[in-house]
C-alpha cells in the first residue's frame, strides 16, 4: 500500500487516508512499524483524509502508541474528522491520544 509521509525535522507526519478497517489495518500497521524500525520516534498521524475507522483501525493506533512509548517516542493526532473522532470518543481513547486541530499545532507541541 505504502503510506504518504512527510518529514519535518525529527518528526514524521503520516497521512492516513480512506478506510482503516480489518482489511487495511494489518498492512498499514506493518508500514508504520517499518517507519519506527528505521529510527523514527516522533510521529503525527494526519487524519484529514481518513473517512472510516473500525475497531481494527483503533488497534493500529494503540499498537503504534505502545511501540513509541517503549522507545520514549511521541504520537500525536491532527485534523481528525467528525465521524472518526466519534469512534475515539465512544471508547474514550480521546483521553489517551493527544489531538490537535491542525498539523501545525501538533508540530509545535513536540
Amino acid at each position: 500500500m505504502g503510506l504518504q509521509t512527510e518529514k519535518k525535522g525529527d518528526i514524521v507526519i503520516i497521512y492516513l487516508q480512506g478506510r482503516l478497517d480489518v482489511h487495511k489495518s494489518l498492512e498499514v500497521e506493518q508500514d508504520i512499524n517499518e517507519i519506527i524500525e528505521k529510527g523514527e520516534k516522533n510521529i503525527i498521524f494526519n487524519l484529514k483524509e481518513l473517512s472510516y475507522l473500525s475497531s481494527s483501525g483503533l488497534r493500529v493506533f494503540i499498537a503504534t502508541l505502545r511501540k513509541l512509548k517503549e522507545i520514549n517516542g511521541l504520537l500525536k493526532i491532527a485534523e481528525i474528522q467528525a465521524n472518526v473522532a466519534k469512534i475515539f470518543k465512544i471508547v474514550e481513547f480521546d483521553d489517551i491520544f493527544e489531538m490537535y486541530n491542525t498539523t501545525e499545532e501538533a508540530l509545535k507541541s513536540f
Partner: peptide, 9 residues
C-alpha cells in the same frame, strides 16, 4: 472492542 461498538451504536 468491536462488540462494545456494536452495543453502543
Amino acid at each position: 472492542l468491536g462488540l462494545y461498538l456494536m452495543q453502543e451504536f
